[in-house]
């Protein structure tokens, strides 16, 4: 039950999901980011931002909250960077994990305030959009709502795998789990999602 990709001690960052120019030294980038070198920080941000944003947008239907949360993830990354460099075993796994927690916090607060009825999605039609797009948006909202009844890990695994089609290995790395553990987790997550969706249809 070992992961299918190598581990590296100390500071390391996996350049998996995005293209890197050959001369870009990702280790060097993180070392410089640790020293708060603005250029390195900007590069790091721009490389990670799209994934974070997609992940958060997958889970919430609120563009403003999505921007806020994505941005907050990076502010928190500064805390980690500032401490010892080796705490950033994988900056990407860290930002995605943090995005997950912030999304969960967002929903918790929303429940607490009871500001909005979750089944009320009138704002979906705020902007006129083609028929097909509206429908797929509705479906996705249905999935989002159903997901809220899943466990934290189940929600995280679904969002990682389906917000941007991350591979099994990448997902395992981001969740700090083995590939086999993720296989089991995603199977159960989708079974649970299926049950929730069925329940909503009734």
């Amino acid at each position: 039950m070992t992961a299918d990709f190598p581990r590296h001690p100390g500071l390391y960052f996996y350049p998996m999901g995005f293209p890197l120019t050959p001369d870009m030294d990702i280790d060097g980038l993180l070392v410089r980011a640790h020293q708060f070198d603005p250029q390195a920080l900007a590069q790091l941000h721009d490389q990670l931002y799209p994934q974070v944003y997609r992940y958060v947008a997958y889970r919430l239907d609120d563009p403003q909250a999505c921007e806020d949360i994505s941005s907050e993830v990076f502010l928190r990354l500064l805390d980690v960077l500032k401490k010892k460099a080796q705490t950033v075993l994988s900056a990407r796994a860290w930002v995605m994990g943090t995005a997950n927690h912030l999304v969960m916090d967002y929903y918790r607060k929303k429940y607490r305030r009871k500001v909005e009825n979750l089944d009320n999605h009138n704002h979906l039609s705020d902007h006129p959009s083609p028929e097909g797009e509206t429908e797929s948006k509705m479906i996705h909202q249905e999935v989002r709502d159903a997901m809220l009844n899943l466990t934290d890990d189940q929600q995280h695994v679904i969002a990682l795998r389906f917000s941007q089609e991350l591979s099994l290995e990448e997902t395992a790395q981001m969740m700090g789990k083995t590939v086999n553990a993720v296989k089991v987790l995603q199977y159960r997550a989708l079974a649970a999602l299926r049950r929730q969706l069925d329940r909503r249809l009734k």
């Binding site: 992961a3 581990r7 980690v80 796994a93 860290w94 395992a172 981001m174 700090g176 789990k177 083995t178």
Partner: peptide, 8 residues
Amino acid sequence: DNKVTETP
């Protein structure tokens, strides 16, 4: 679990 990365 076999931790590959530290999940924050």
